[in-house]
Amino acid sequence: MTVDVERLYRSHGQIVLRRARTLLGSEPDAQEALQEVFASLLRAPDSLRSASSVVGWLYQATTHYCLNQLRNRRTGARLLQVRPPPDALAPSPEPLAEVRSLLSLLPDEVAAAVVYHHLDGMTHAEVAELLGCSRRKVGYLLERAGESLAQAESA
């Protein structure tokens, strides 16, 4: 099966853009995510060919990209020894700003489980399918997220 990336971009690109806006909270970063997710598809079309759902693949790819970006903001700020942009990491009136800050502290798989379950409203079974793990492991990941975030909040 050949993946027509341009066609897919036109039909499904809005899913990626909407999701990236929510997760990153920045229009330029969301636009970059939109381009990068589809660029990754051009580089590795096999990843989509083996997926059971195009929408599911886009959810995964966008989440993975955005969580990396959230971590990179934190790492970049540390490497350059500058304060992170206020809208990126510090709590602000925008409700999801604090969520982004907290997600950047979590390991990739744990953060992804949190996004899928809490922000997307997925059941443990749906999260398990996207992450390719058992429902039991999803429960463990969410529990771990709760512990990590409680520690971060009390620190």
Partner: peptide, 26 residues
């Protein structure tokens, strides 16, 4: 964990709704 409480407002997940919108199997 207060900051990351469940925020999705519907009964069915965003993934299922997007699949439905895009004509995928649900």
């Amino acid at each position: 964990m207060n900051a990351i409480a469940r925020t999705w407002p519907a009964c069915v997940s965003a993934l299922q709704l997007d699949k439905l919108r895009m004509g995928e199997s649900v």
